[in-house]
Amino acid sequence: MSNDNSSSEQKVTTTDEFIKGLWRENPVFVQVLGMCPVLAVSNTAENALAMGLATAFVLLMSNVLVSLLRNFVPKQVRIASYILIIATFVTVTDYAIQAISVELHKSLGAFISLIVVNCLILSRAEAFASKNTVWKSIFDALGMGLGFTFALFCLGSVREILGNGSLFNIALFPEGFQSWIVMILPAGGFFTLAIWLLIINGIQTRKTKS
């Protein structure tokens, strides 16, 4: 009986670990982490999606390894070991993307190596993976990674539609549409992020009130 109870509890918590990253603790909209790639690579929907997925992959792999090694690595060198693990998977991702498509690597090139300094990944390693089982860490990474991808896509699609008049390089507006160049420039990233934060926080305050 008690066994049953704990296993059902386990189930609830793993789905919860997954869901929280998508919405309640969304890394971009709620935790406001990893702002560098969020602002820099969200100028088109395609770049945003690719960057989000690459980050999610690195997050997943490093969470798994950090969690596996959590009893083996002494406290004093834990941060150094996280950095080493994260950097390894970033390099692996870099080669993998090169092998998948030269085009994609061309458009992401500089930003792939910058995943190393994405504080989202380090924070999940320190705050979650180093204290939880591998199984839970996988769900945490999937939730956070997809939440990050979702947020990047929200920004990227808005910026591409307004700044370039297209979505996934398909033109949306008739000829003569004056694109808002500012949306593609860094300033547009800040504007769009602010508007999304306003909307998401508005929804969440309304929810807690009711």
């Binding site: 390894l65 090694l69 083996f72 690595v73 002494p74 060198v77 150094a80 070991s81 080493l84 693990i85 950097a87 390894t88 998977f89 390099t91 692996v92 080669y95 993998a96 090169q98 092998a99 498509s101 030269v102």
Partner: peptide, 29 residues
């Protein structure tokens, strides 16, 4: 021990991926 161990795992992972992807990367280029 921990740092050296992780270093070796990292090195192995990177070299393996590099070797595995190299022919395809060169072909694509």
């Amino acid at each position: 021990l921990a740092m050296v161990g992780i270093g070796i795992i990292s090195a192995l992972l990177i070299v393996t991926t590099f070797e595995l992807t190299l022919p395809r990367v060169q072909r694509l280029k």
